[in-house]
Design a protein around this nucleic acid. Sequence first.
RNA 1: GCCUCAGUAGCUCAGCUGGUUAGAGCGGCGGACUGUUAAUCCGUAGGUCCAAGGUUCAAGUCCUUGCUGAGGCGCCA
Length: 484
Amino acid sequence: MSKRTEIKTVLTDFDSRIGQEITVMGWVRAFRSNRFIALNDGTSMNNLQVVVDFEQLDEQLLKQVHFHACIKVTGQLVASQGAGQDVELLAAKLEILGGANPEEYPMQPKAQSMEFLREKAHFRMRTNTFSAVFRIRHGIAYAVHKYFNDNGYFYLHTPIITGSDAEGAGEMFHVTTLDPANPPRTEDGAVDYSQDFFEKPTNLTVSGQLQAEIGALALGKVYTFGPTFRAENSNTSRHLAEFWMIEPEVAFYDIFDNMDLAEDFCKYLINHILEHYPAELEFLDSRIQKLEQNMPKEQRRAMGLIETLRFVVDNDFERITYTEAVNILRSSKPYKKGKFEYEVEWGKDLQAEHERFLVEKKFKKPVIVRDYPAEIKAFYMRMNEEQEQIPGRTVAAMDVLFPGIGEVIGGSQREERLDVLKARMADMNVPEEELWWYLELRKFGGCPHAGFGLGFERMVQFITGMGNIRDVIAFPRTPGNAEF
RNA sequence: GCCUCAGUAGCUCAGCUGGUUAGAGCGGCGGACUGUUAAUCCGUAGGUCCAAGGUUCAAGUCCUUGCUGAGGCGCCA
């Protein structure tokens, strides 16, 4: 193929190219007035206007310039006569690389529903909305690595297949090469996993945290960023069966260092996108405004997308303890009026409606809640000292709650005291045999350390303003859905 | 897993208390158009009303079951 110039380059760096002949390739977004082709090659939010003179080009060729057909155009770049763009390309040569017969092609040059586009995941990335989302998704992923690299963290690849089912984060997908219809059996009739590939039962990982702790206790500061699997039957706009999670783990960090890291990290990611993807954000912002035009006022966002992102980076996150949260909730208007469906009571977990009140009504910004009751949190979270005014024991856990999507981060300081950890595992029926190495980490050269898990798609959702998590991952896996 | 709502043309939807040949906008197709920007204008075709059963003289409309999707909740990131 002859060399092409990317459309983003043409549109942003055109001074030196005006008057020159260039070649561009991309997908047709519109063919107006038998003269103007809006061409997009995925590099930019904006299209290049290609101007055709039908007397100079074959009529049959121009008839194939359909919506989303892929074409190659060579011609002279000139200053545009029209008002909508700086430059345009006068087509001297036009070639159809891939036609798109509109009588069969399902995509149409108009707004289509998210549900319909989800069924067309192989085409939806050609739309403005999804190309913007996926450019931003890339930008956030890049910023994750840049942030950690620039701050002295090491990227650790924790296993996708795990031999432990004690990671305490929900139902797991089994991994096996045994024939499910006819597996080998032991004498007592159980499946004989000693004949399986790994000679033991294995699952897809639900978290890289326990292994990340191994890294932290050697390299000091590590992070993981990889796929994570939960076999929960979750049917919501913020859950996936396969998602990407970022898990920093840091030696010598306590819960407060952990909160500082979480806040700084979130702000860095948002700032990176504000700085590098303004066109995408403006498009998504206006998209939401159009969507909300017909909604009643109370259902609309209080602030625009970009305004929300600026607000989050410009303000400190609110930090409260679980006990304070319970007190705030119990003296709140909706509580007194009986508007909450679930009871607010020390010892019970905060429900989505409670978190939403704190984030969206009370503080109107991200909130970090810490020091949750020990009974409702995982075995590895560090036990706090007893406090007189608090009804029960708490652990040094923290959740970062964002407006609209709720929990984006869950983390904790880890229990480094061997005896306390063993007691907790016994209390919660976590088998020591499976996590012998986790215990030895405390026995030999242990230290205080902390970390958290950030749901990557939830962050992408927040930054792009997309309402459903299935629309910020290219190929969503949810209960009953693994197409593509 | 639970609750609520929806499924009618390629897409988005209208179709009233059941009543003849089921509608619109957009998209498609045919045509016009050399300065358009969600281009515009004229013409035109296009339907197993999600599926199966039932009630009725008569069902897109009512009932039952199932399937699919969405929203909310739970589980969490």
